[in-house]
Design a protein around this nucleic acid. Structure first.
Lengths: 154, 154
DNA sequence: ACCATAGTCTATAGATATGGTAGGTATTTT
DNA sequence: AAAATACCTACCATATCTATAGACTATGGT
């Protein structure tokens, strides 16, 4: 299960992708309000995203947040990685840290590791090939489909 | 990250697959000792697996646990599903429960859902096509490779 | 019938992670 | 100087995960 942190991050990034297309700076308070995210909690998330290189900020009056990269250069995998330290399935397969399973006496031929390695590959392949732009686009498409159907039915 | 519960479950099942081939009953205490799993914790896990239809047990003297199905009929996905209620990535995509995201005002065209739906498909596809037998076999193969290399180097 | 064995159930304690809050600080614009 | 705005540190509450304890029930051997 992805954490709320990650979910909020994706919501905020989605909002920034849609409302900051021409380089406008968006306020934390606007993001928090529009996406219904606790403001203080969101602050911490945005800082993490900035440190992770996907957001830029400007302090002071007239300040705010904007994407540091175009939406099609920001993969969902990168976001997940920033906020959860990678999508780790077992301790010993974590991206960042190279830990051996404490429990596991034979990590070299641990079947669980093999299987979870496969799962991780599958997950990473999706997360790294999907960008913020894709996410927003799919949402928009679905919304349009819906309104088209609505039109027909009127 | 899969929970220890699930990891312990897979360890125990692996042991049963390897040591119970001819239908022997294996004691909880043996499993706990050999796989270094806290016994009382393991008990609960085994009960869950039994209720999930993957294990059979016999109470009383001479009792113990055995697989309820051949290892190649037990998918890793099933085990994960029993212990974690499915590999849910977002609340609104859980297998068992059909919940709408509370936060999400527009679940029908939520981009996060679309993306996580794809991830879930990828994960499930691996977990459902991999069986306990595969897991054990890969572990064995790796172990043999290793010993072969050892032989050469001697 | 009795007893040892072995799984089952319920309750609970301790540890860790998550979600959320409070208050103050630093920086920029006007 | 004042207002706006992001930044930082610390903290708390709750939920979940891991683990343990103890009493209960069923079986088989004697």
């Amino acid at each position: 299960m992805i954490s709320k942190k990650t979910k909020y991050a994706l919501q905020a990034l989605g909002y920034l992708a849609e409302h900051g297309k021409s380089g406008e700076l968006i306020l934390i308070s606007e993001l928090a309000k529009e996406e219904a995210i606790p403001k203080k909690f969101l602050e911490a998330i945005l800082v993490a995203l900035r440190k992770g290189g996907v957001l830029k900020s400007k302090i002071g009056k007239g300040g705010g947040y904007m994407l540091a990269l175009p939406p099609d250069k920001i993969t969902i995998g990168r976001v997940v990685s920033i906020l959860e330290g990678g999508f780790a399935l077992v301790e010993c397969l974590n991206d960042n840290v190279k830990i051996e399973c404490k429990e596991c006496r034979e990590p070299e031929y641990c079947g669980i590791r093999f299987v979870m390695g496969d799962v991780k590959k599958a997950v990473d392949s999706v997360l790294e090939s999907t960008t913020l732009a894709d996410m927003v686009e799919r949402s928009d498409t679905a919304r349009q489909q819906k309104s088209k159907i609505m039109d027909y039915s009127i």
